[in-house]
């Protein structure tokens, strides 16, 4: 077919995946709104065209595929999804995994908290004062792109097998992404807003706390989300290499025993932790950026 100025996109059979995610399509026109059948039909249309639907189908489909392949090929390194779930349930019941989970999450929390606070402070200083930015920028960039995992022996030598080695690694994993996003956030604060504050008598520390930080918060939170993802990676990598307890350590234990089922079971927990932690940051983000009237001041 010839393509001309009037060819509709849909006629070409290709929908460019450009636009942002569409929200669910409104239901098909209903002829008899009171008819039960019609209502179910429109609900079905709504469900089938929603994004979440595809996610679910894809997820279930993938897991199904995993199950089938595992059962057909029966390899020691590819346990079936159902047996992994069984194993996980066992581990939960024995309490083993919960102890690890708590330990790992504590490390994660400590490391991330430290990285968040220090990261925002450094990022704000760099964003506000060009001298500091010029000075620190090459190091921030270098450390952000270098393979952080290679520093594990360094932290091991300083802290030994204690949790602080892992916490330090987590800090290094997440802090630079937070710093970089904070710098951007601070630099893009509306200059006129800061000027206004000066006019009304704000001194530098007031400008920062009352104008710059609130204005920069959305982008800072974006950095936090990315930082949390990195922090989880750091937690795992650190624990695989250093720790004696914790999710990573347990997984490594299973690995050495060639217990693939165990490894996958822990993996499920880790994925869950990662998703939950990121979701948590998202929730905080949404709450903080609903432009709360900060009347506690």
């Amino acid at each position: 077919m010839s393509v001309g100025p009037d060819t509709a996109m849909s006629e070409l059979g290709l929908k460019p995946a450009i636009e942002g995610r569409p929200t669910s399509v409104p239901s098909a026109p209903v002829l008899l709104p009171d008819s039960r059948g019609q209502r179910w039909a429109s609900l079905a249309v709504r469900v089938c065209t929603a994004d979440g639907f595809y996610n679910l189908v894809s997820l279930v489909g993938g897991l199904l595929l995993w199950e089938i392949i595992a059962r057909v090929f029966e390899r020691p390194y590819l346990p079936a999804f159902t047996s992994v779930v069984d194993r996980l349930w066992e581990l939960i019941r024995s309490g083993e995994i919960l102890g690890d989970l708590s330990r790992s999450v504590q490390n994660l929390g400590l490391g991330f908290a430290f990285a968040a606070v220090l990261g925002v402070v450094v990022g704000t200083l760099m964003g506000r004062y060009a001298v500091i930015e010029k000075m620190l920028d090459p190091y921030v960039y270098a450390l952000m792109t270098a393979p952080t995992v290679v520093f594990t022996p360094v932290y091991f030598s300083i802290f030994g097998l204690q949790r602080w080695a892992i916490v330090a690694l987590i800090v290094q994993y997440s802090i630079f992404v937070i710093i970089v996003n904070t710098v951007t956030a601070v630099k893009t604060v509306d200059r006129e807003l800061v000027e206004m504050a000066s006019v009304f008598g704000a001194r530098e520390h007031q400008r920062i706390t009352k104008i710059v930080l609130p204005a920069a918060l959305p982008l800072i939170m974006a950095g936090m989300r990315l930082g949390m993802g990195r922090a989880v990676k750091g937690m795992i990598n650190g624990e695989l290499l250093i720790a004696v307890v914790g999710l990573g350590a347990t997984s490594e234990g299973f690995a050495r025993a060639f217990d693939a089922e165990g490894v996958f079971a822990v993996l499920l927990v880790v994925v869950f932790v990662a998703l939950a932690a990121t979701k948590l940051v998202e929730l905080v983000d949404r709450k903080v950026n609903a432009w709360l009237p900060n009347s506690q001041r």
Binding site: E192, L193, E195, I211, P214, A215, W291, P293, N294, S295
Partner: peptide, 10 residues
């Protein structure tokens, strides 16, 4: 140049 996160009063 209003603070978008603050109320009119603030």
């Amino acid at each position: 140049a209003l603070m978008p996160w603050a109320s009119v009063l603030r």
